[in-house]
Design a binder for these strands. Structure first.
Length: 483
RNA sequence: GGGGCGGUAGCUCAGCCGGUCAGAGCAGAGGACUCAUAAUCCUUGGGUCGUGGGUUCGAGCCCCACCCGCCCUACCA
């Protein structure tokens, strides 16, 4: 089977605190990481922050803070998501401060030298978008007048890579999931790929960013910079065995998660750079759609996005993770509301799994004597493969639903066998039934681990005998109320 | 302007290559049970499948046009 799996999230730019939209991607990546680790594969999960965006600089100015201090503070907020979201990333890279990064970006630049040339660019540039506009009015996204810019820049010969990219995608060497996104990329390539500018003048970048090797007057385009993290974090450019192990050898899987808005950068620009540098391509790009909050588009700059750390503090990590995984469809945007978060948690986590554990443990308590053993219910046997196939297709909702069949079946089994009646009548059949249910709950605890790790641990603990008896019953998941 | 994706029961969504595909969950209604976190289990779903055409023996599922939402992208391909 495949050996290593290198998973990455995109690097959010840190012009503001993290919102649920990023939490979605982080949690998805974490579930994949946990899942594959459980299957015995060697996993490395990377996340981090894009500090070098000009947007960060502007946000810092607006906040009246020195840019480095500003990005330090926000980056810390992203890294601090580890606890509230129960993330298990193995590495966190920051593009402005990580010693691995700058050297790696420079190396990547040099390795692509054959495709880099100098030319003049003139056009209208939107600072908010970090790219040029052709319209003369205002940027529709930022409602700000673009700036007229004419300068010498470095360009990358993207036009040369249309065919190799198409081949990589159609051959399946580079998988883009879901298929609709793959088609979108193919259509994009069919539409023609133009060379693009990969540097900005130092003045326009306000000196913020990574200097172009050998050209102090230019700063590396922030996307080149940011995308590079996928290899610079592994020591590409600074040596170290990690790069060869996780990327350079071409073995194993190299999996990027990314939002639909940055598809082009991940599925076209980035592979082209790798091709140019003679490096292996990612094996998969998993594209998710967006979240809205209370029916409105999330806007970091407007600050109306729900904050994941805050949500986790209020409603718990499990509730947040479960909502993101169980409720967000693979295709199509999903609307986040606290009401939905709470409803889903109460319905599934409290009323479903939590209540199941309570009834099983309580009944076992009435049994007296030793904790009975038993085989898990038949439904358990099919769950691992159902989860495998759902996750292989990047379908978290289907995966979560697959695990949930255990809860449904167990509650139904309880209802059908009615062990409380047997206990009342002194029928010894109750022990066997409860033994099977207890074993089933333990399987549930195991299978739930990638999705809701905290709850999973509680279930496992509550259902595992220690010293011949079960731990005293403590509800594994109390009901929530909307605050 | 171009490309893409969505628009299916009150709500959130499944519906692979066209023929039990008109569905699930929640909400609502009725019932059962009492081991449990007013939880659980059973029964109950007549909604023009965005709109209008078309192809077909037969279309949410194919084609065309249009409307709405979102993503990307751009000037005359």
């Amino acid at each position: 089977m495949t050996g290593t799996i290198f998973l990455t999230t995109t690097l959010p730019y840190v012009n503001a605190a993290p919102h649920v939209g990023f939490a979605l991607e982080a949690v998805q990546a974490d579930v994949l990481a946990r899942h594959h680790r459980r299957r015995g594969r060697e996993v490395r999960l990377l996340t981090g922050t894009d500090d070098n965006s000009l947007k960060n600089l502007l946000a810092a100015e607006a906040a009246g803070l020195p840019v480095q201090e500003f990005v330090d503070r926000n980056a810390a907020a992203f890294e601090a998501l580890r606890e509230p979201l129960s993330l298990t990333f193995d590495d966190f890279i920051r593009t402005s401060t990580d010693p691995r990064h700058r050297a790696g970006v420079e190396r990547l630049w040099r390795d692509c030298a054959a495709d880099i040339y100098r030319s003049t660019y003139e056009g209208l540039y939107c600072v908010g978008c970090e790219h040029y506009l052709t319209d003369t009015t205002t940027c529709p996204d930022h409602e700000a007048p673009p700036q007229r810019v004419a300068e010498e820049n470095w360009f990358f010969r993207l036009s040369r890579y249309a065919e190799p990219l198409r081949e990589a995608i159609t051959s399946g060497r580079l998988v883009i999931e879901p298929p609709a996104r793959r088609n979108e990329v193919l259509a994009l390539i069919d539409g023609g790929l133009r060379d693009f500018s990969i540097s900005r003048s130092r003045e326009r970048a306000r000196g913020w960013g990574i200097e172009v090797p050998g050209d102090p007057g230019q700063v590396v385009y922030v996307w080149w910079d940011a995308l590079g993290n996928y290899v610079t974090s592994l020591g590409y450019g600074t040596g170290g065995a990690a790069y060869e192990k996780w990327w350079g050898s071409g073995d194993g899987r190299r999996v990027h998660l990314a939002g639909k808005g940055v598809l082009r950068f991940h599925a076209v620009y980035w592979p082209a750079l790798l091709l140019s540098a003679g490096l292996p391509l990612p094996t998969e790009i998993l594209v998710h759609d967006y979240l809205t909050v209370d029916g409105r588009k999330i806007s970091k700059s407007a600050g109306n996005g729900a904050e994941p750390a805050d949500l986790a503090a209020r409603y718990g990590t499990d509730a947040l993770r479960w909502w993101l995984l169980r409720e967000v469809p693979q295709t199509g945007d999903a609307d986040f509301t606290v009401e939905r978060l709470v409803a889903r948690a109460n319905e599934d986590l409290a009323g479903g799994a939590g209540n199941l554990v309570s009834r099983v443990v309580t009944l076992l308590g009435k049994l007296g004597g030793a904790v009975p053993g038993g085989e898990p219910l038949p439904v358990c046997a099919g769950v691992p493969s159902a989860v495998d196939s759902a996750l292989a297709g990047f379908d978290f909702r289907r995966a979560a639903a697959g695990v949930w069949t255990i809860v449904e079946e167990a509650n139904r089994y309880l209802e059908q066998t009615r062990p409380w009646e047997l206990l009342r009548d002194g029928d010894t059949g109750a022990a066997g039934i409860l033994g099977r249910l207890l074993a089933t709950c333990r399987v549930l605890g195991r299978e739930l681990e990638p999705f809701v790790p905290d709850l999973a641990a509680k279930i496992s603990h509550q259902c595992t005998p220690a010293g011949g008896t079960l731990p005293p019953l403590r509800p594994v998941y109390p009901r929530l109320a909307v605050e």
